[in-house]
């Protein structure tokens, strides 16, 4: 058995040293195998990568006519986020409006609007924000965290908001 093994070893080793052709053919083989199985591995990678874009879409919010200056409305996104949308001006452009998340950027508690203080207040650590989401006091003020904003757009005099959505299927 042992002699056989050593014999075979020399048989394997010899052509590698000896033949240029062998080097070429070995390179061709290596290239072919890498290309074929490499492409297969790449397909597998694509297969495993999420096939859906992150689910976000423009959702109808309100028509402009019934959304006066100074008013705000609470919108819940299909995925459940509570969002406060306020109209600050009457220019008729999208900059009139601001859509703020009601999740405190500090530790994720729910903030709520205090109309008498004209501020959003987070009860967890007494954080407060003004009507455009800038921090007024509490931990958010210390680390200068604003309330997250959502994108808005106006199309045909209708207001749309871009929010995460959950899929039906």
């Amino acid at each position: 058995m042992n002699t056989e093994v050593s014999e075979s070893e020399t048989e394997v080793a010899e052509p590698i040293r000896r033949s240029f052709l062998f080097a070429v053919s070995a390179a061709v083989m290596a290239f072919g195998l890498t290309a074929g199985y490499g492409m297969f591995a790449w397909l597998i990678g694509v297969f495993l990568y999420p096939f859906r874009e992150s689910a976000e879409s423009w959702q109808f919010l309100s028509d402009l006519g019934s959304f006066g200056v100074g008013h705000s409305l609470t919108y819940q996104s299909p995925a459940g986020q509570k969002i406060v949308v306020t109209r600050l001006a009457d220019a008729g452009t999208v900059d009139d409006f601001i859509a703020l998340s009601s999740v405190c950027p500090h530790l994720g508690c729910q903030v709520h609007w205090e109309s008498n203080n004209a501020r959003f207040f987070c009860p967890c650590h007494n954080g407060a924000f003004d009507k455009v989401g800038k921090p007024l006091s509490g931990p958010p003020k210390d680390s200068d965290q604003t309330l997250p904003q959502y994108a808005l757009q106006i199309k045909n005099d209708l207001l749309f908001i871009e929010v995460p959505t959950t899929s039906l299927t």
């Binding site: 052509p15 053919s25 061709v28 083989m29 290239f31 195998l33 290309a35 199985y37 492409m39």
Partner: peptide, 24 residues
Amino acid sequence: KLETKQFIIGFLGLVFLASLVLVQ
């Protein structure tokens, strides 16, 4: 010969690649 086998394997690897390009 081993060289022939290696060429064949290299060639088949490329055919496999071609079939995967078709898949793509």
